[in-house]
């Protein structure tokens, strides 16, 4: 509701504050409601396996090239930078461990999350937004089909399955990128480098990264679908929803990453 002109002057700051608070609160509420609906419908028939398969391919397979390239260069530059830094106090032997730990615990899941936010998140928001403004979502309802079940559930499931899968590739290729730069460019001994890589890396480091990836996958799908589902106002509205989806999903990845890390790694 717009601010009424009749509001007493003294109350206007309160009203203004309320309007500021209203937006994030209704957004948070909307996301929780959509999550609840999605979880309730995950196991309910009819199953739309074709939709699920399409989304698995879209989110997983089609994101893979970008994820691999990003991971390879991130691993490479990580090796280069830590070599330069560590050489100053004679610790260049630890480059392999730093690359492995950074990729699996942090950069693998986060970079994958950011890439999927930009690629698949934008696509989800734009597709659902277009379906909303062209009444295709209403049409689903008139055909006795729950739009959350038909559209959101397959995207949500694909997100929580494919983000960790992509992260595994990202981890591996990032470590490989670091290995390549260290042994071919910086002249490290390959055997020694690999030993250092495995010495300090535990299976728990990898798991923690994957737990984060599962969370990111669910959050990205939910936020993007929510923005698309509730878009209004024609083509411009779909554009705004898409922008909001990418910005919010990326923020969610980065912010939740801190809290998940402090909770998982204490």
């Amino acid at each position: 509701m717009r601010a009424e002109a009749s509001t007493p002057a003294l109350l206007r700051p309160v009203e203004y504050l309320g309007a500021i608070l209203m937006r994030p609160l209704s957004l948070a509420g909307g996301l929780v409601i959509m999550l609840a609906k999605t979880l309730r419908l995950v196991f309910a028939p009819p199953y739309n396996l074709r939709n699920l398969f399409r989304q698995l391919v879209e989110i997983g397979v089609n994101s893979l090239p970008v994820v691999l390239i990003t991971a390879a260069f991130t691993g490479a530059v990580l090796a280069l930078q830590s070599y330069i830094g560590f050489k100053r106090f004679g610790a260049e032997g630890l480059v392999g461990s730093v690359v492995a730990l950074s990729m699996t615990r942090e950069l693998g899941p986060v970079l994958t999350g950011l890439i999927v936010s930009g690629r698949a998140g934008a696509a989800m928001a734009a597709e659902l937004g277009t379906m909303r403004v062209t009444e295709q979502i209403d049409a689903l309802e008139t055909l006795a089909t729950n739009p959350v079940q038909y559209l959101v559930v397959p995207r949500f499931l694909s997100g929580i399955v494919m983000l960790p899968a992509l992260t595994v590739f990202s981890d591996a290729v990032g470590i490989l990128g670091g290995y390549f730069v260290s042994t071919r460019v910086l002249g490290a001994n390959p055997t020694l480098y690999l030993n250092r890589t495995w010495d300090y890396l535990t299976i728990t480091d990898i798991y923690h990264g994957l737990y984060k990836a599962i969370f990111f996958g669910g959050a990205i799908a939910l936020i993007s679908c929510y923005q698309g589902y509730h878009s209004e106002g024609g083509a411009a509205g779909v554009g705004r929803a898409t922008t909001r989806a990418v910005v919010m999903a990326s923020m969610a990845v980065l912010i939740s990453d801190y809290f998940l890390s402090s909770w998982l790694f204490q």
């Binding site: 295709q136 049409a139 689903l140």
Partner: peptide, 8 residues
């Protein structure tokens, strides 16, 4: 629907 609302 007015715009047919076919699933594209």
């Amino acid at each position: 629907f007015q715009g047919a609302a076919l699933f594209d």
